[in-house]
Design a protein around this nucleic acid. Structure first.
Lengths: 145, 145
DNA sequence: AACATAATTGTAATGATTACAAAATTAGTA
DNA sequence: TACTAATTTTGTAATCATTACAATTATGTT
């Protein structure tokens, strides 16, 4: 859980002016575990900032991605998700049943899979399947039927 | 390079009826190295089949994904890409400058990164960066400026 | 040939994202 | 404090990939 002043520090370090809405956007993405979409960010901060527009949310997210504070996750079609860039590298697991996205470990040295002469800037490892809870649920359903 | 009869065999094995348009869609995706988008498939086969509709291309791609012949790649936002599923597992590298997508190696045992109790159905490893050619081009530009 | 099923089509709708220009806010400076 | 320029924010309209849907056409089987 990051405090507002920690969020402001992140913006300052990234040389992004900490406007009210940018602060709200980053605070939500940073503290929410769900790798939210632009629309989820918009809905969430609307309660605190009823005047915020969706375009501002997009503008803020783009600015934060360009300045290296956030990362875009193209983990599923339909909507881009956003994740804090400034944390330990990790992979992502998406449960195809409940839709939750979980952080997982990421092995070192994956870049070595890329042919020599290529320059790797970003590495994304995505898994999809069923999470523990949904496996339990589907077993319940089976025994009930 | 797969022949038409090989493509038909793939459809038969997947228990998908080899209609004319499905054949054209699969043949294009299978033989093209570029992991095309639905729109690219549509544009490409329009020259051979002027009457084909975009909906048919989407229908065909979805049918082929559901039957396990093709795989969807959510490698970048904006459009889903399609790849043959029936080949050695591999990762993908996207050049952020020229947009080309290259097949790369995929290490074994990546599933072990996922917490116990989760069931992994698909694994995707994506890299982004600069390919050899684009690195050479940008060096040329630098020395020229 | 006749019937049932599957494939194909065209159009309209949806939903995420972007373009754009005007209005509001902020920072730096006199 | 007031001025000016740059930045941020807003609202609306446009764009683009994808889907929904209902009508038409083609196919396989008796």
């Amino acid at each position: 859980m990051l405090t507002s002043s920690q969020i402001i520090n992140m913006l300052n370090q990234a040389k992004v002016r900490p406007s009210v809405h940018r602060l709200a956007v980053l605070e939500y993405v940073a503290n929410k575990q769900t790798h939210p979409t632009a629309d989820e960010v918009f809905s969430a901060i609307t309660s605190d900032f009823p005047s915020v527009s969706k375009t501002t949310v997009y503008n803020s997210l783009h600015t934060l991605v360009e300045s290296g504070v956030l990362r875009e996750l193209e983990i599923e079609s339909g909507a881009t998700r956003y994740d804090l860039a400034l944390q330990l590298p990790h992979s992502h697991f998406r449960c195809t049943r409940c839709g939750h996205i979980y952080d997982m470990a990421l092995p070192e040295g994956l870049d070595r899979m890329v042919s020599p002469g290529f320059r790797v800037d970003t590495t994304d490892l995505f898994f999809a399947g069923l999470c523990t809870e949904c496996i339990a649920l589907s077993e319940d359903n089976q025994s009930a039927s």
